[in-house]
């Protein structure tokens, strides 16, 4: 029993070690990638453009719900003018980066894992190696950097659409004063403390989600079952890692104030 745990723990540590070596290898692919931006653009399409609609619609609804719930609570204190602050602060600081990362891992991350895993299962990666092409640099690196770049843009899109959704519901439906909505928001949301920190968060989450996704795909057992397990693991681990690191990042950022 105890021995089983030991083996399990050792295996886990070994995997984490492999994941870091893998990341280093991927990062070494950056210079080569800069010479072939076409590869990056292609993957940005798969990872970013195809996630755009999902992110925008989710952001819209999250913003609208925030406005409804916020208005409900704030009206008890006669503080409806602060609705803009509430919606924007929740979105920019937390929901934008976190929800985008979770949706992103479900949409793009799982697809990356499955794609790379299938390429491994069908010997495409092995085939590239035998053609003297490094699959980590040729296949993994463009996908990794595409994910890393797309995440902050998607998170910003999510927050923007969310704020607009909150505006439609708050100002349009619930009759909050338009001037107060924007003015209070601008007075309370700080560019460095809120916007920049939100971007930092989304960059970190982008790194975590795409790293896990490409590693799980590359490390998958090369069978149909192995790939499907890797895909599930990719989404589950991403969610854990995003929420956990969100706590750490938030604690660090609040202490820095």
């Amino acid at each position: 029993m105890l021995q089983g745990w030991g083996i399990w723990a050792l295996g886990g540590v070994q995997r984490i070690g492999r994941a870091h070596i893998f990341l280093a290898h991927v990062l070494l692919g950056l210079p080569g990638l800069l010479l072939r931006l076409r590869l990056l653009v292609r993957e940005m399409y798969v990872v970013g453009v195809l996630s755009m609609l999902l992110i925008a619609i989710s952001g819209l609804f999250v913003g609208m719900v925030l406005a409804l719930q916020g208005h409900n609570v704030l009206s008890e204190f006669d503080a409806e003018q602060s609705l803009g602050v509430l919606v924007a602060a929740s979105l920019v600081r937390e929901l934008g980066p976190v929800v985008t990362a979770l949706l992103f891992s479900g949409r793009a991350g799982s697809a990356l894992t499955a794609e790379i895993g299938l390429m491994k299962a069908t010997e495409q990666l092995s085939g590239m190696e035998m053609m003297a092409v490094d699959p980590i640099k040729r296949v993994v690196a463009p996908r990794f950097f595409a994910g890393l770049l797309s995440m902050p843009l998607l998170a910003a899109l999510f927050s923007m659409v969310g704020v607009l959704g909150g505006y439609f519901v708050g100002v349009g439906l619930l009759g909050v004063d338009e001037g107060a909505f924007w003015a209070q928001m601008q007075a309370k949301i700080d560019f460095e403390e809120d916007i920049i920190n939100g971007i930092i968060k989304s960059l970190v989450f982008g790194l975590i989600v795409t790293w896990i996704a490409v590693f799980e795909g590359y490390d998958a057992v090369p069978t149909a079952e192995g790939v499907s397990r890797a895909t599930t693991r990719s989404v589950v681990y991403s969610a854990f890692a995003v929420l956990g690191s969100d706590f750490v990042l938030t604690a660090l950022m609040l202490r820095g104030e």
Partner: peptide
């Protein structure tokens, strides 16, 4: 090693074509 591999071709069982 990559220079060596450029001198050999390999035909995989499944073909291993890029899909």
């Amino acid at each position: 090693l990559y220079a060596l591999r450029r001198k050999m071709g390999m035909l995989f069982q499944t073909g291993a074509l890029l899909t």
